[in-house]
Computed example of a mutant assay.
Amino acid sequence: MKYENAGDVLPAHLLEEIKKYAAGKLLYVPLEKERKAWGELSGYRHMLVKRNQLIVNMFLHGVEVEQLSAKFHLSEETIKKIVYSRKNKFQLTYSPTLKSASEYSEAGLLEEWIHTYLLFHRRNEIFSDGLRLCYRYYIGPIMMPLSLFQRSSGPEYDMKWKVHPEVFEHRVSEWLNKIVQTEDTPPLLINYEHNKFEINSDNPLYEALVRSRVAEYPVIIWITAKECHDAFLNTYGMYV
């Protein structure tokens, strides 16, 4: 890199100001495109935004400060600063709907929407904790044909997860009512692995959509392995 004499390239008044702070020192002036906010290059800043969003969501759903402190390995004072911060008014609100999921996705917080949905509307903490064990790829919400998927739970004998017929039909009926009333329903949560799809959440919603003759519906795809992620994009990239 070529060094220049500051006296040759800077206006006199600016040079006098710089001398007050760095006379005799070598300074590097970054290009405009090189200027990054703290933490942006490492992704650490966005990681904190994601973590704090989930903490706020959990707090608003009744999780106590003490519980949040233990779960996220932070002091109670740190948790209080996060959940009571005035900046929270700029954070996203959550609802179990496609609109909310799309807003979170656009903000780079889709994973936080998924965990909030699983914890407080599916009541499936085990599933949520399992997703957090390693890095996952999350894609969506995207419109995909329902014909690509099949239920993984229900009353049939060959289902991976068996559900009592009356319980299953009751849940399907609830979703059918929401569909008829054109409510904003949540996207389906689907795992893709080795060229196979598995509906992980809301199988009764899927059944209600099929019975309502819905051809396409928003889904969130989660993938564990990079090779499966690449395979998904190669085969189904037209939907992304």
Rank of each mutant, 00 (worst) to 15 (best):
L118I: 03
E169C: 14
K178H: 13
F127D: 02
P155S: 02
L148W: 01
E112F: 01
L118G: 01
M144H: 10
H170Y: 12
H170M: 07
R86Q: 13
W175K: 01
T116S: 11
I114T: 02
I179M: 02
H164E: 13
N177I: 03
V167T: 11
T182Y: 08
E125G: 10
Y117K: 06
T116H: 01
E103T: 08
P165S: 00
T185V: 06
K89V: 04
S153N: 07
H170E: 12
K80W: 15
H170N: 10
F120W: 09
V172Q: 00
E112M: 10
K99R: 13
Y84M: 13
R171Q: 09
I179Q: 08
Y137R: 06
Q181T: 12
F120A: 10
G154N: 00
I179R: 05
L131C: 01
E112V: 03
V180M: 08
R132S: 08
P145N: 04
Y117C: 10
P165V: 02
V167K: 12
S95Q: 01
N124R: 11
K87W: 09
L110V: 09
I126G: 07
K89Y: 15
S173E: 09
I199S: 11
F149W: 04
G108F: 06
E193Y: 14
R86T: 11
N124M: 01
L119V: 03
E111W: 06
M144T: 03
K162G: 09
N124C: 03
E183W: 09
I142T: 03
P186K: 13
V83H: 14
D129P: 14
T97L: 04
L188P: 10
M159P: 00
S173Q: 15
G154F: 13
G140E: 00
V180L: 07
H164P: 07
V167D: 14
V83L: 03
L189G: 08
T185L: 14
E111G: 02
E198M: 04
L133I: 15
D129G: 05
V167I: 15
I142V: 01
L98E: 11
H115E: 14
F197H: 00
L110C: 00
K81E: 06
Q150M: 08
L131V: 06
